[in-house]
Amino acid sequence: MALYRYETHLHTKEASACSIISGAEHVRNYKEAGYSGIVVTDHFLNGNSCIPKNLPWEKQIELFCKGYENAKEEGDRIGLSVFFGWEAYFQATEFLIYGLDKKWLLEHPDMLTWSVEEYHRRVHEDGGFVIHAHPFRIRPYIKEVRLFPDTIDAVEVINCGNHDPEFDHKALAYAKSLNLPVTAGTDAHGYESALAGIDFEHKIKDSQDFIESIKAGRYKLIRI
């Protein structure tokens, strides 16, 4: 049976200050690695972003989406599916947001003032999906673990940016305790790529298909 592999957590240098390669370069790397698609999840404007904060909201969003748009253009050219998402930031607690788009971001210029709970509620109201990214990671910039079990849809339990395997073990136990779906991602920045992801038995059509397939459990987590 053919399997279709997807990266779920990826940053481009167009929008994320920590990334060293472009969206188009990521696409070529993942195509060569045999993946069927990627989700671009750049750090949002209040996180580890390289987008100037003194610009009007519309211009910030235009620049923020460039990594995805450049990846999508290259993906369409060489045959790799590219989906849009982002990594939301709340005082070092981060969430991957799937299922919404650039238009949604443009329509919510006040979103950086929302609490975690309001943010997740608004995302859900418009059909989005919330994954708690690396929930048990501790780093100098992450002083404490903060959990939001009542407002998330899934838990990232494999993250190749977690240099302590205990972070992933705790995330898996947490997801099991909540009976939530689990995901795996490279957390790719360019110096590492194509190290994890999800294998599906069918080719993913769009972001909603991605979300529904995760909800249904029709996949296998991969760490290379």
Rank of each mutant, 00 (worst) to 15 (best):
L80D: 07
P135W: 14
F84M: 04
G197S: 07
G75M: 12
K215S: 12
T93G: 13
S207H: 07
N48Q: 00
L10A: 03
S193A: 13
T183P: 04
A194S: 15
Y141G: 01
H132W: 06
A2L: 09
V130Y: 09
Y30V: 08
E87N: 02
I38M: 14
S16C: 09
T41C: 07
V82M: 09
Y68L: 15
Y141D: 01
P56I: 01
R137D: 11
Q60M: 11
D150M: 12
I51N: 01
A71Y: 14
R218D: 08
E87T: 04
N162E: 05
V157A: 14
G99T: 13
P109V: 01
P181F: 09
G79H: 14
E58N: 06
K103A: 15
H124F: 04
T12F: 12
G128E: 11
Y4V: 08
F148L: 00
I198W: 07
E166P: 02
V145W: 11
D153S: 14
F136L: 13
Q60N: 00
T186M: 05
F167T: 11
K72S: 15
F90P: 05
A17I: 10
A133F: 10
V40F: 05
L55A: 06
P52Q: 01
D150H: 12
S177C: 00
L195N: 06
I152R: 06
K215D: 05
K13Y: 06
I224N: 08
V130S: 11
E69H: 03
H189S: 02
H132P: 01
D101I: 02
A15R: 04
L221P: 05
K143M: 12
E7I: 00
A33W: 07
H202I: 14
A15C: 05
D110K: 03
K220A: 13
R5A: 02
I78H: 07
I224D: 03
E94G: 11
D168N: 15
F64R: 05
E7V: 00
I224K: 13
Q60W: 04
I38P: 08
H11N: 11
V82K: 13
D199Y: 12
I138R: 09
